[in-house]
Design a protein around this nucleic acid. Structure first.
Lengths: 209, 209, 209, 209
DNA sequence: TATGAATGAGCCTTCATTCAT
DNA sequence: GATGAATGAAGGCTCATTCAT
């Protein structure tokens, strides 16, 4: 019978619906200010039911985090698969990261915030899946760097593993800066386009031979 | 009589003692999980007394944040004052930033966390002083870049204002990565020294002519 | 199924039980000195549960106030419906008011205190229902006065609207006096029966033709 | 030496200054919302000093209450001393009461609120002086009533002691009604002048022969 | 006498989680 | 599986009062 299977699918659908609601809730209100009551109301489910699908509020947040990393991985994978030199691939991945962050700023925050030292959910025993996705993103970058070194588009004296991490960290830092609320009087402060250009300039010049 | 003056000094000393305790508390437990009760216990003061020195929990945190930015500014100022080419100054400031982050990881977090989008205290009307310190740090970097362009150590086609922000963002991202808790099994994951080296390599190559 | 209906009834029952407890608590301790902890203990409910039924302490008090005015209105309505001249109706309503105040001294206080200038809950946006009950009481009195003027039991030169308010104010003042605690040594001070008699004497003579 | 005497006068002056400040504070903010800190700031005295003059916050309030009753007594005494029939004296005292309440609405409230059952300070062992002033006011009224019975302006079958209390209670109730904040939409509700007229009409007709 | 820093009990309210139905 | 009433441990903050100086 497909009965059991159908039930499973149904359950997964519900789970995703909860996550959808949680996403918009958490990102609108902030994680700490969001309550399970609000989530229950938004999902039109009872509070008890929520706990049938997620063991805790943190788990809900974690699931969103995983979602976000999964999606980011897809963006990176696509960029990594493009034709071109290794350097071009690296730059394409950088662009993909920026696109992701601009298209899904909330997802980006879920990733950035979650990884923060002292972040609310990190260091939990079940935080495994998310980490793997993170590693995979790094791995794409490492491979592209090595490809670039083989095809001559990237300097040979670069240590690919470390540089990949540096590039990712740089991207995260940049997006966090760009997404930070203008602290005062809403002054123009900086031009996102110019910022991106400067970064790509730095990376291209810094990596290429 | 210096009585009044002494009282004022005494008061300031107490204030700083509270901040010291708050620092270690907040950074150990995280801001949200720290309570005023805990702070009272740690300072061996009553809860009421705490509110004689700080109007709210947020204000305590903000004061730490200001402290941190002040100190970081000193680090940067010192580096910015060193002899050498503009490029060397830029790199020296990068090194100073890393030194600061390693010497005072908690202060670094205070800065990084506070600036986070959706951060708990940002956008308050009194969050001005802190912002100015931030701007000053950027300014040091801009000047060093321009100096480098004049003395020939840095490419002329670089837009100093944007690049300064990129460099700062990069540093923040890198330190956040390095300070992130090893998410699992404590695997070595990455080598901080190699990471720093890779970053300086990227920056030097990326900026110089 | 009447399941849902039963639940609703159950909920209402609980609500009333909380109000019962709150009544005796507030009137014993005074509103300001009563705490939600006390109310929780008295109802043998947790403090959190209290907030499932009432949004705030003020709302609890307000609910009591409404209860009181509702009951008073019933007393007045009954008296207003009696046979007799208008004057007799007015006096009957006065007597009903006194009966109410003697039977439910706490309710009387809830009304008197709530209406007090500077009372804690007044001027809230939801304080509407209560006010309407108050107006209705006045209305009964106005009608009785006019009836009396038609049937000749009450002087024609009396302005019914103003006189109704005067009579109500008089009654309130009198009951407040009678309910005031003997400030010292418990001396007899005054005789409630004589007081009532004096008031009815005054009103009868003052109104009749 | 007049030294000690001067000190005593100085002390009394300070005491009165505190009361002046407390009056405007309490009546502006409400008793419960006023804090000793506020009073200290208003008097430009330290909080500790306040406790040198008054044993508690309640005592401060009580002193204001006494002040108020004293002043009311003066108003009544003056009216009671006027020439005319007993009835005229009674009515004059009523008018004096209304004048007092309109001139010093805050004082009136201090009296009315303090006497309220469950009022914050009542039933304290030291609440004696105030009570005496209250009795004196009653006494004036009793005498005027008896005078009226002698001079034929007031019915003989009235029991002066009870009627005096009724009249006072009536006045209090009326003023409380008139001072109550318009509960809704600021509608005109009632006309104070008409109210006063109605009351005097009732009393005159009710008392006179 | 005057100060004001320190106290600490207490207040109202919130909310993640549980569990009987 | 779904519900939602009940829980209770905190949480941030207030304020009348005390006391060493």
């Amino acid at each position: 019978m497909g009965t059991q299977e159908r039930k499973l699918r149904e359950r997964e659908r519900r789970r995703q619906a909860i996550l959808d609601a949680a996403e918009s809730l958490f990102f609108e209100m902030g994680l700490e200010k969001s309550t399970m009551d609000m989530l229950a109301e938004k999902t039109e489910l009872s509070k008890g039911t929520l706990y049938l699908y997620f063991a805790s509020k943190d788990q809900v947040y974690y699931a969103i985090h995983v979602r976000a990393k999964k999606l980011l991985c897809q963006y990176l994978a696509e960029a990594a698969g493009k034709k071109g030199t290794g350097l071009q691939q690296v730059l394409a991945m950088g662009q993909a990261f920026l696109n992701f962050a601009q298209t899904y700023p909330n997802y980006f925050r879920a990733i950035a915030f979650y990884d923060l030292p002292g972040g609310s959910v990190a260091e939990e025993p079940w935080a495994t899946e998310a980490h793997l996705y993170g590693l995979q993103g790094i791995d794409y970058c490492v491979r592209a760097l090595k490809t670039g070194q083989k095809d001559g588009s990237i300097r040979m004296d670069i240590e690919a593993n470390s540089m990949a991490l540096v590039l990712v960290a740089q991207l995260k830092g940049l997006v966090m800066l760009m997404q930070a609320p203008p602290p005062l009087d809403g002054a123009e402060e900086f031009n996102p386009v110019a910022l991106e250009a400067a970064m790509f300039d730095l990376v291209r010049a810094g990596l290429s031979r």
